[in-house]
Amino acid sequence: MTDNLLEVSGLKMHFPITKGVFKRKVGAVRAVDGIDLAVKKGETLGLVGESGCGKSTTGRLMTRILEPTEGKVLFDGRDVSHVGQAGLRPLRRDVQMIFQDPYSSLNPRHTVGSIISAPLQIQNIPTPNGLKSAVQDLLKLVGLNPEHYNRYPHEFSGGQRQRIGIARALALRPKLIVADEPVSALDVSIQAQVVNLLDDLQREFDLTYVFIAHDLSVVRHISDRVAVMYLGRVVEIADREQLYKNPRHPYTVALMSAVPVPDPARRERAQRNRVLLTGDVPSPINPPSGCRFRTRCWKAQDICATEDPALIPRLEDPASHQTACHFPVTEDEVVAGRRPAGAQA
């Protein structure tokens, strides 16, 4: 029907806060508070935003590690929002997750071989040449030495451990991989190796990625489309080039202008054009009324406090570019340089 592999709509995840002996519910952390997103087959959707804005929670909802409080998760057209263990089984094959911390996400007492083969055994996947050779193929695929089948995670470096995590995710030949900050804990040079590996694997296996990161340059590099999150909402989504060249949401503009440019010659210009946000992200327990960004927005007006702006396309932009703002940043403001210098040869 559609070419969307994954669709979420009206998605909410509220974690209850309880108090006292009787665990009375006194409020909720609105980690994800109403988002609609579609992930197309074969694309990479990037998810960016400051820490605590709900990226990981969104990822865990998409993989149905968490059950949403409200809203729908459609995978390949099938509603999996509330399916139980049995219904999740096929989903666990098709959707895999890679985590940030390569140190804590691997069981230190299991060999690499048993870590990677576990999903194959759990799902009863036939391996024509035996389990061991299947695992060794996977190790080769992610650039690890197949001889290291019997080693333990602590014998590997951070980057290698992340590769093990990727091999485990690939074992079931999933259709969708949700990668939650997969390179954030790695050194720059290793980060690039893993990014390239993810790129290669996507091409080879026709994978669809949701790539979560707070590093805007890495996200731009790897994604086809990028969604910017703020306090449990998607505030802007667009094709990569469109988003980075014509950011419309004041938050996106501020976020991008904050990224330091590795070029001392542009230092002055970058600093002049920088939109410095003041203060911190408000608490997701009690988000501001109206537009959630209004407490830090330099364009905020009265209406922003009362009316929650919808995520909608605007006339001058392609339909795929949607912004949730009453007063989006205009072309002129963008040209005037309220952002890091655009693509430059």
Partner: peptide
């Protein structure tokens, strides 16, 4: 050179591939 090649940059066009340093520290 390897460090510079490893990092994607917002002030340049997107490269097809990063050029990382091979191996580990």
């Amino acid at each position: 050179w390897g460090l510079l090649g490893s990092m994607p940059r917002l002030d340049r066009d997107v490269r097809d591939r990063l050029t990382p340093v091979k191996g580990t520290p």
